[in-house]
């Protein structure tokens, strides 16, 4: 089943894979982002319209822009802004038991 624009969940194998190239990323109960190719950069990597946080806040909250790509075909799965120490957000967690049932 498709669980996101670029992600499939294989209901037999209980794995998550890339819809573009078919690459298997991880088990269905894991955070696919931990198994994606993650690029970390400053907030200004989000586009020309973004300003460095320090310029706006007068202090640096250590924010970063994280992008998650398919490690095989490089398609952009998702992004998140986070402080350096923030864990990678587990934003999609399908209940594996409910699928098996």
């Amino acid at each position: 089943m498709q669980i996101q624009k670029y992600l499939d969940l294989n209901e037999e194998e209980l794995t998550i894979s890339c819809r573009k190239c078919g690459e298997t990323l991880c088990n269905a109960d894991e955070n696919y982002k931990e198994h994606s190719a993650m690029r970390t950069g400053p907030v200004t990597d989000a586009g020309p319209a973004f300003e460095p946080p320090k310029k706006l806040l007068g202090q640096d909250p250590n924010l970063e822009f994280r992008q998650f790509f398919c490690p095989s075909c490089g398609v952009l799965f998702d992004h998140e802004f986070a402080r350096e120490d923030d864990p990678i957000l587990h934003d999609i967690e399908v209940d594996v038991d409910s699928i098996k049932a």
């Binding site: 669980i3 806040l57 924010l63 998140e80 399908v94 209940d95």
Partner: peptide, 22 residues
């Protein structure tokens, strides 16, 4: 839809005028 949990995390910039914390 399947059962599951979805999560988000974002920031409020400043709790009031003059406060620059996240």
């Amino acid at each position: 839809l399947p059962d599951g949990t979805w999560r988000a995390r974002e920031f409020m910039e400043g709790s009031k005028t003059g406060d620059d914390d996240l």
